[in-house]
Structure formats: structure tokens, C-alpha cells
Nucleic acid binder design. Structure first.
Lengths: 243, 243
DNA sequence: AAACCTATGTACGGCAACGCACACAGAGAT
DNA sequence: ATCTCTGTGTGCGTTGCCGTACATAGGTTT
């Protein structure tokens, strides 16, 4: 579940730079952080942070991606944000809150680099490029969450499924996503049957094809044409902030 | 619409400290900012920031409160957050984004203190208590937006109306809110008729009473019993972060 | 007091999504 | 080869909210 790096303390640079935030750091900042980075292998469904729980690390995903979820008292859930190689999990640590009232769960198996909170904070407090980058990313995440709020209110399950597939595809190297309708339903905050019906329609239109937990993205262009504006808004804002 | 302070440059301290963030500042930080503060009187419906527009100031509301809204291409709107005396409008300026893709609109007429972006940034970059406070507030706002995302997905118009009334009441000194069903419908992202129906039910249950743009909060306890958990989650998290 | 505007009330058909129940099928286990 | 589990398909009736249309009632203007 949690696998440490092989022998030496310093981590492979080009691997760690697979995370876009780490990749954007100037050499000196990266070198300071490097010794504190530790690769981790995440498996699907693993809980990275529990709601309100103590956070010991921040995580910079490279090939993995992580959902930010809220769970209601009655057990129903909905996703508010999605973090992959373009971001970092654990912003509450530098924002000063230490915890958040939501859960972070692995949505795509893969690798992330983690760092102890203190090491991260030391660099953050220098006030240089690292701080800048973390804050700009946080703003991009705010846009994502905001757009999710509005999208949840105004758009159909089918449109939201398109958006979710596109976002997930952006974080995945292959065209095949490993996830069941059931899993997606918890992310979108709808019934499993609702996902099945929407997925059927997308399949009929030739955008995707699926069997038992494997979804193939067949026609990204068509998905883009079918999705609500929310997808592009978040994408554009991310590009504007972090280029 | 925009009224400047009377004679002297420095603003009345106890008035400006009506904003809870300014109130929490240590004396030295407050004194540095003080000369840059300027009182403004906002009227209902006024647009503070346009989506994607240039931001020249940050605003610290005291008696006013401001909605953060997103407007879709087709003109439909929904609120993602609400800022009053406990917060600040314009976080994008210190987060490094300079603008945001959403609009800020006055939802309750009243006063705010504004400050030029540069003056604010100079203090922010000192890395002291002001920076700390702004970041912690931003985290509280993230919680509010996140909870709105989830609430929009999982709760009924009636529950969301309760939440909205309670939040607005918290930012208002009186028990009377000045707003029409139409206005509220744009905030909740539903039809005007939907608000009318929900408001009727709350009135029948004795929680509120209303006539033509005036809503009286009659029984806060009952509203609290009727609202979804989202209200308390946001409230608690805010207290934890900024207590 | 009449005219007018704005805010709220009411009604009707329609649809998307819900909750529940159960059938069927792919994939691994015995 | 059969069993079992998990994932997907389908069919109800129900409900919450939508879109539209129009009626009534406070307030304001003339």
C-alpha cells in the first residue's frame, strides 16, 4: 500500500517532476524540497485523508488522482474536487486550517510524492515561488469547486457525467478508465441507475464503450461537444493561473 | 453610490473593526493598513466585481453583504458563496490570480471598507498575522463553497432556502430581510415559483412571514431544526478557523 | 381615485431523477 | 462445471422541480 523509495534519500527528479507543481519550481526550491519527498503507491479507493482527521503530509500526485468528497450524515456522498498531477492534496496545511471537513479518496491508482507538513511549511514560509505556486493552485481549485457547485445545480446527470469523464481522462495516461457505475454514482451524488442510463446514451452515441468496470473513451471531441460549459471554464482558469 | 470618507485620511477605527477580520488584527498591522482604508456605501444589487474583470480593491464589509455568483451562458445564475462582516471580497488578489470567473454582487445594502490592491499586497507579503488571517478565511470560504456544491446536489429547495435565510440573517443586524422571491431564486438557482412555494411552507409553519420584498425571521430555532446539516458544518468550520 | 408596476399566488402538463425490486451476465473461486 | 459475487440492465410508481401562463394584490405614480 505505502511503498518507500529504494535506497538513497533523494528521490528521482524526473519522476517527481511528473507532478506539474513540482515541475514548475525553480531549481533551488526543488532541491530544498527534494530530500523530503517520498514516493507512494496508491490503490483505488484508498482514503488519503479522513474528514476532520489529522494531516501529516501533503501529497503531489503524478500518475494517481484523488477525489475530494463530502459525506452526509445519512451516508450519501458527492465530489467537490478532483486532484491529479496538476495539483496537491492537503492545502489546509498551508492555509492554516490543518484539517478540512471532507475526505480525500484515491480515484485512480498510481503514484504520488508526499512530504511531511513541517518541511512543506518551512518552504511555504519563505514566501517565494513555492508559496506563489501553492496559492495560485488553490485559487484554481476554488474555481473547480465553485463550478461544481453551480454545475450540480443547473446541469443534467448526462452532462455532469461527460464533464467527469473528461476531467478524469485528463488525469489518466490511457483511454481506459477503471471504474464502475456504482463508484461514479458516489462521485456525482446520484443513483447508480442514473449513471447506467446516462452511460448507455453516451455509448449509443459512440462517445464511450464500457464493460464491467472498464470504460473506454472513444471520441473525446464528441464528449467535448456534449459537455456543459463548466468543463472548459475550469480548464481555462487553470491554464490562466498555472499555464 | 460610492461615498468617500469625510475629511481626514485615517478612518474611524471602531467602525472599520466592525469587520471581523480587521478586528482580529494586532494593533501594528491595523495601523499600517488604516490609512489605506476607505469606507464605501453599497446599495442592493450593485456589482462589486464583474466576472473576469479587473480588480482594483479588496472589500471588507461591515454592515453590507456580498454574494459570489456564477452566470451561465444562457443567463441562469447560482450563488457559490456569501461574504459579510466575517470576511473579505477579492481573495483572488492575494491568491495571485488577480481576477476570478465569477461576479460579486451586493445582496444586503450597507457599508464596507475597501483598500487598494497594492496596499493590501504589501501587508500580505510581510507574512505576518494579516497573511495568516487572510489564508484562514480563504479556507473557511472554501468550506462554504464546497458545502454549497454538495448541498446543491443533495438537498431540496426548501432546505436550501432555510440555509440561505439563516446565513443571510447571520450577516444582518435586524430580523427583517429586504429581498424578493425573484432575487432569492437567482441565488438558489431555481425558479421564482419554487421559492414562493417553499417560502409559503415556512410561513405556514410559523418560521417566517413575508410581504412584497420584506421577510421577517420569526422563529430561528425552528429554522435551525428544519435546515440541512450544511448550515452547521460551515458555521462550525468558520468558528474553528477564525473563532 | 385611477392607472400602473411589481411581487406573489395558482394551475397544469411534462420530465428528470428518485427509490425499490429483480433479472441477467461476466469473471473469478471451489 | 458449477457456484458465487459483483456489475449492469430494466421496469415500475412517485416526486420534486421545470416551463409556461395568467390571476390577484400591495405600492407607487399621475
Amino acid at each position: 500500500m505505502v511503498q518507500k523509495a529504494k535506497g538513497n534519500n533523494a528521490v528521482n527528479e524526473s519522476e517527481a517532476r511528473g507532478n506539474r507543481l513540482l515541475a514548475s519550481l525553480p531549481t533551488d526550491a526543488f532541491e530544498r524540497l527534494r530530500v523530503h519527498l517520498e514516493p507512494i503507491s496508491f490503490s483505488l479507493g484508498e482514503v488519503v485523508y479522513e474528514s476532520g482527521g489529522h494531516m501529516e503530509h501533503v501529497y503531489f500526485p503524478t500518475t494517481s488522482h484523488i477525489s475530494l468528497l463530502y459525506t452526509m450524515i445519512d451516508g450519501s456522498t458527492a465530489e467537490m474536487g478532483l486532484v491529479g498531477q496538476e495539483g496537491v492534496v492537503g492545502i489546509a496545511l498551508f492555509m492554516g486550517g490543518e484539517t478540512t471537513p471532507n475526505r480525500a479518496m484515491v480515484q485512480g491508482a498510481g503514484v504520488a510524492f508526499r512530504m511531511k507538513a513541517k518541511a512543506m511549511l518551512d518552504e511555504f514560509k519563505r514566501g517565494g515561488e513555492f508559496q506563489h505556486l501553492m496559492l495560485r493552485y488553490t485559487q484554481a481549485l476554488i474555481t473547480q469547486i465553485s463550478q461544481t457547485a453551480v454545475c450540480n445545480r443547473l446541469h443534467s446527470v448526462e452532462q455532469r457525467l461527460c464533464r467527469w469523464l473528461l476531467m478524469t481522462h485528463d488525469l489518466t495516461q490511457s483511454d481506459e478508465l477503471q471504474m464502475t457505475h456504482e463508484f461514479i454514482s458516489h462521485m456525482l451524488g446520484v443513483r447508480r441507475e442514473g449513471v447506467t442510463m446516462a452511460a448507455q446514451r453516451l455509448q449509443e452515441m459512440g462517445m464511450i464503450s464500457y464493460v464491467r468496470g472498464h470504460i473506454q473513451i472513444l471520441d473525446r471531441q464528441q464528449l467535448m461537444a456534449h459537455v456543459c460549459e463548466c468543463y472548459q471554464v475550469v480548464k481555462d482558469e487553470h491554464r490562466r493561473l498555472l499555464g
